[in-house]
Computed example of a mutant assay.
Amino acid sequence: MTTEHINFRHSTFSVTDGVAEFSHQRPVQRNALSAELRHDYADMLDHVEHDPGIHALVITGSGGSFCAGGDLKAVKERLSGSGSTKSAGLSMRANLQDAHVWLDRLRQLDLPVIAAVDGPAYGAGASLALAADFILASRRAAFCMSFLKIGMIPDMGALHTVPRLVGTAVARDLLLTARRVEAEEARRLGLVRDVVDADALLPEARRLARRFRNVPRGALGVTKRLLNVSMETPYALLAQLEANAQGVETGSAYHAETLERFLRGEPPLFDWDREA
């Protein structure tokens, strides 16, 4: 049962049985990442972060596209109206700095984020999908780090996420060639968790999301945040962060309840294998 539905500027947001779903709604523009859609992400995160009843977030697109990248028409208008290349560059820098505020909130969200990708996820759209914890792709999905094709560098976190997901050698291939990667290759590279038919994409994403309905949100959020810094954090520091976090989670009500269930011989609240 849908408990909440909001129409934002260029997107929709709904919550059904604890699963939040955020859908880009600019199908004619292949869901290009407009200024309005960026604001929608910030507003959506305000809802998700403050609703303890939500246990997973699905982000997706409409009309057979996930997100074709930045809104190049808006970029062109900004260049034309800025009066100078320097002013346009400063504007682009400010826009990206603003975007990274909500993008980091998305990455650090204390619940699983699932990107359901149908059709193109290009440029900033590909970067956006890679900010999720899991990517499910339709068979007609395609990914492309297309930035160099228009004389720009990979942005929206791609230079951070891509090498961590696939290694530096493969990242060079994807980022320096700006080539198209079909769904099955993306799965083989480790970018995509699973590939399904287009009409099964959202049902499968929702099914995956529901399996997290009893997840310990606090412990999962800390795990994500430590994973996000693990590759650049010295072992000794990470060990201390781990010890501090474990001390907090050991004192949580969730841990106390699951410990009692274990001692009574009852199954845990969150059991991925049992939910399969």
Rank of each mutant, 00 (worst) to 15 (best):
residue 1 M to F: 13
residue 4 E to Y: 14
residue 13 F to N: 07
residue 14 S to W: 03
residue 15 V to C: 04
residue 15 V to H: 02
residue 21 E to H: 04
residue 21 E to V: 07
residue 24 H to F: 15
residue 24 H to M: 12
residue 26 R to F: 02
residue 26 R to L: 15
residue 29 Q to L: 15
residue 33 L to M: 09
residue 34 S to Y: 07
residue 35 A to N: 05
residue 44 M to Y: 10
residue 45 L to R: 13
residue 51 D to G: 03
residue 54 I to W: 00
residue 56 A to P: 02
residue 63 G to Q: 05
residue 66 F to P: 03
residue 68 A to Q: 05
residue 69 G to E: 01
residue 81 G to E: 11
residue 83 G to H: 08
residue 85 T to G: 09
residue 87 S to H: 14
residue 90 L to W: 11
residue 91 S to L: 12
residue 93 R to N: 10
residue 94 A to C: 08
residue 94 A to I: 08
residue 94 A to H: 15
residue 96 L to Y: 01
residue 97 Q to T: 02
residue 100 H to F: 11
residue 102 W to F: 15
residue 102 W to I: 04
residue 104 D to W: 01
residue 109 L to W: 02
residue 110 D to T: 04
residue 113 V to W: 08
residue 121 A to R: 00
residue 123 G to Y: 05
residue 125 G to A: 08
residue 132 A to S: 15
residue 135 I to T: 12
residue 145 M to R: 07
residue 146 S to Y: 00
residue 147 F to P: 01
residue 148 L to G: 07
residue 151 G to M: 11
residue 157 G to S: 09
residue 158 A to H: 04
residue 158 A to E: 11
residue 159 L to W: 03
residue 159 L to G: 06
residue 159 L to C: 11
residue 165 L to H: 10
residue 167 G to F: 06
residue 170 V to H: 09
residue 170 V to D: 11
residue 170 V to P: 05
residue 175 L to H: 05
residue 176 L to A: 09
residue 182 E to W: 00
residue 184 E to F: 07
residue 185 E to H: 05
residue 190 G to C: 08
residue 191 L to H: 06
residue 195 V to W: 04
residue 217 R to T: 05
residue 218 G to C: 07
residue 221 G to M: 08
residue 224 K to C: 06
residue 226 L to I: 07
residue 232 E to R: 15
residue 242 E to K: 12
residue 244 N to E: 10
residue 245 A to N: 07
residue 245 A to L: 14
residue 249 E to T: 10
residue 250 T to E: 14
residue 254 Y to D: 06
residue 254 Y to N: 03
residue 256 A to I: 04
residue 259 L to S: 13
residue 268 P to D: 09
residue 270 F to S: 07
residue 271 D to M: 03
residue 272 W to C: 00
residue 273 D to R: 14
residue 274 R to K: 02
residue 275 E to G: 02
